[in-house]
């Protein structure tokens, strides 16, 4: 086979074509694929170094932006005499803080008192439930009843004292 004929045979490979369906689907898939980043918006080119540089630039810009924002807010607060308003001055803040501290101390004292009182009450109630109180003892009541002389309720001492008070 001559070289020309061989080349003609190779040229027949031009008949090979992708199927229409593959071409259509492939086109759609590629064109719907969103590109990573348009180079127009990159600060420098591509590659590892360039990407690192891009990242560094972005970080620096973000930091600058934050500093400007915070610095701007500081200047606004300082210059617009907001600090001079009642409620913003440092003396007022100190007094207010002292008052709040005192209030807190008082409340803490009360809470402590209530806690102790509650504990004592609990102890008393516990004792009461375990041992009956003395004034309810039937023996004591009987003794007192004897000494009260219910039959002749006149108390000489009381009469003398009343006479002394009225005369």
């Amino acid at each position: 086979m001559s070289e020309e004929k061989l080349i003609e045979k190779i040229k027949e490979l031009r008949l090979i074509k992708p199927s229409d369906e593959y071409a259509r689907i492939g086109r759609l898939a590629i064109l719907s694929h969103s590109k990573r980043l348009n180079s127009k918006w990159e600060l420098v080119g591509k590659g590892f170094f360039a990407e690192s540089l891009n990242f560094a630039f972005s970080t620096v810009f973000a930091a600058l932006f934050l500093v400007l924002m915070l610095g701007g807010a500081g200047v606004i607060l300082k210059d617009s005499s907001v600090g001079n308003l009642p409620g913003v001055g440092s003396d007022w803040i100190v007094t207010e803080a002292a008052n709040i501290t005192t209030d807190i101390d008082i409340h803490l004292g009360e809470a402590s008192y209530y806690a102790v009182a509650a504990k004592k009450t609990a102890v008393a109630l516990n004792e009461t439930s375990l041992n009956a109180p003395a004034h309810t003892s039937p023996l004591l009541i009987e003794n007192e009843a004897k000494s009260l002389q219910f039959e002749s309720p006149t108390n000489k001492n009381i009469d003398a004292l009343l006479n002394q008070a009225t005369l």
Binding site: L13, I16, P18, G26, R27, I30, L31
Partner: peptide, 25 residues
């Protein structure tokens, strides 16, 4: 290169058979 999708679509249609053939062989 400016991001026009349809433009790349035209390039795709034109070069697909050639590249496909090349890869298939």
């Amino acid at each position: 290169q400016d991001g026009e999708v349809e433009a790349f679509g035209l390039l795709y249609e034109h070069y697909l058979p050639k590249i496909y053939r090349f890869v298939l062989i």
